[in-house]
Amino acid sequence: MDVSDILASHAAKFQATTVEKDIHLDADPGCLAVSDLNPIDEESYNLNLEEHLQTLARDGTQVLINALFSLPTTSSPDGPLAQLPPPVFQLPRAKPLPKPKPPTKWELFAKAKGIQKKRKEKRVWDEEKQEWVNRWGKGGKNKQVEDQWITEVPHNAEVNFDPRKEARDERKVRIAKNEKQQQQNLARQANPRETRKREIERDLVQTRISTASMGRFDKQLEGEKKPHGIKRKFNPTEENAEDERKASLALLSKIESDAKKMRKDPQREDNIVNVRKAIRHASKGKGALAMAGKSDGKGNKRKGKR
């Protein structure tokens, strides 16, 4: 029986799994990507764009799948899993590069002098103990004199000379000096405008809590920000009911007295004439008593010398 016809028709239905192109397609299974560097065939592009794109995509996918199937696999309950190699294609960085740190004073000096940075190991060899010890930190080499049980005292030492204290003080001074230099470096690198702003804000907060009541009864200005770090304080929930009642009544009487002070003259609308003003006008600023004297007649007027 001749099956060559059937085989030929079957083969015609399916394309070959190998892709033949002028330039070899680059598969990057790590990124699950394929790059096709071949120039675009203008003729088929113009003839039928969809078909052209489909054939391109088909070829690329075929190459990728070929690459995937050639990878080592591990079996899992869901079927074989291919182990992807690390990606080759370099994706561009999403974030901008970090800005370089401004150099410290020492770094500037070292650059000017051409001094190379020497990397110090964190651990050093201790000949006496015959083991590696920390250069600093717990059981550090820099604390050796302080920690040893016996220390040689020089001949010309004072009576109360304490070699441990001496060594410790020296170490502490070195630390303080380094910290001071760090601060100076930070100050040199800081934006003067920002520094000044922070200083002003700090001073403002300080002045606001520098009244006798710690700023409790101060008037709030328009647009004034709440100072950070000042917490509200509430009375405890389980307060004595008697105290609470007294406080409420006191507040109520305070509100009432405030309202009385603020209350306007109730008969203001009814009285069209402002009596006080009218009296002042009529008496030419002398007041109601002077007017009363005038109505009594002339007999009331003073006569002669005083």
Partner: peptide
């Protein structure tokens, strides 16, 4: 749950006093 602060009490009392006046006591 917490007791009212002075400002909050003032707001509440002022509103209640608008309806019940001195009966707030």
């Amino acid at each position: 749950m917490r007791p009212l602060t002075e400002d909050e009490s003032k707001a509440v009392f002022a509103k209640l006093a608008n309806y019940i006046g001195k009966n707030l006591v």
